[in-house]
Amino acid sequence: MSNINGKVYAMNAITPMRPWKTWILRAIFFILGNVKPLQSDLINLSFIQFARWVIIPRNSFPFVGAPQQRELLEYDYLLFFSNFNGTWNQYIDAFSAVLSKGLDLVWKWSEKFPGSTPVTIFKEYITRVQFDTDYYYTAYPHATANDVKNAHIVQQTFDALNRNAATMSPDQFREAYLQFVLSVQTHLGATGEAPIVF
């Protein structure tokens, strides 16, 4: 029972929407989904592994038959799910500082959404609508998204060097090795324990 596993935090937030507003959000999602540059700010926040918003219409909740009773829901729901590296505060601070327009566009259709700035009121809102994680598996608790991406780059670059190295002359290898180091030199960070959450 924890939202945190090593360097990763899993956040779930569920917010109710008046059904007529859901259509507006669908249109916004269509545009955001098809105009990739609009996603760039979110993607460029490198400590976010992923973030996804999903609309759950009020008639789409699971019904498995009797004895479960059919529910009559008045609201559609917006599920927000994100995994990120760093602290909850750091994450929301960054969201508010960098993505406030985009967040407002997605969340303003939810009931009682106060806006993503000022940040303290936004944090209070997230606290109210956040659901804690029951079980959370992560393959690399000592690695962040950056670490994993860096490791892939180092591995691929090394494999390429390795493939060609056997046939190189010493001088060629010297040059190839230098190029290899230059290609990986910003990707050599160590993995390890996460800092203490505060």
Binding site: S46, N89, D93, N146, D147, G189, A190, T191, P195, F198
Partner: peptide, 24 residues
């Protein structure tokens, strides 16, 4: 102190993810 000094000390001096250098 927590948002400014402690953040800089923990995240940027004794850790390096924001600079993409892992735990360096």
């Amino acid at each position: 102190i927590s948002r400014q000094f402690e953040f800089v000390q923990q995240q940027w001096i004794n850790y390096g993810n924001d600079a993409h250098v892992g735990n360096e």
